[in-house]
């Protein structure tokens, strides 16, 4: 077949249509839904509140392979004022769970830093579980840049 301009145009439109159709079940949206569902599993259906927890992440990550993130939760870390765990999600990754931190009175402070992988620009979500049964959430968008050379 000789490839004419018209053919090329036709193929492009076809490809675009396919992309639009495909978007409805795109993994990104599935990941956002998976994340919401996983948060509800973590909280036992309780909607987490705002405040108390701070998620620190770069606004722009130079490379998605190594993105530094920190969480800190206001707490005396004694008696009933204790953070039991913090769960982290990346809602645009092929698989959203990132890590779960577990704290004790011996932790002294509910603070943790690690490095994570982000497949693309997306939200990172952290949810804290307090000993008194309450939950708090923070969310940050991290833009992941694409390298100039060689992708």
């Amino acid at each position: 077949m000789k490839l004419t301009r018209r053919h090329v145009l036709g193929l492009t439109v076809g490809a675009a249509a396919f992309a639009v159709a495909g978007a409805r079940i795109s993994p990104a949206l599935a990941s956002v839904e998976d994340t919401e569902k996983a948060i509800m599993d973590f909280t036992g259906g309780i909607a987490p509140g705002a405040g108390k927890i701070t998620l620190t992440a770069p606004e722009i990550a130079e490379n998605g392979n190594t993105v530094p993130i920190s969480v800190s939760v206001e707490s005396a870390m004694e008696g009933d004022d204790l953070v039991e765990s913090v769960i982290l999600f990346a809602d645009g990754n092929p698989s959203p769970p990132v890590a779960t931190f577990h704290f004790t009175e011996m932790s002294g402070a509910a603070l943790a830093t690690t490095r994570m992988r982000l497949a693309k620009t997306q939200n990172v979500v952290a949810v804290a579980k307090m000993k008194d049964g309450s939950f708090f959430m923070d969310k940050k968008e991290v833009k992941v840049t694409i390298g100039g050379c060689g992708g």
């Binding site: 698989s95 959203p96 890590a99 011996m106 932790s107 830093t113 690690t114 994570m116």
Partner: peptide
């Protein structure tokens, strides 16, 4: 753990970067 008592734990998923790094506190 400090002297047998848990200080900090983390369950890691594949989204943690190569050469896992942690920074945390201990009393």
């Amino acid at each position: 753990a400090f002297e047998g008592q848990t200080v900090f734990e983390c369950d890691l998923d594949p989204a943690i970067s190569a050469n896992p790094y942690f920074e945390f506190n201990a009393k």
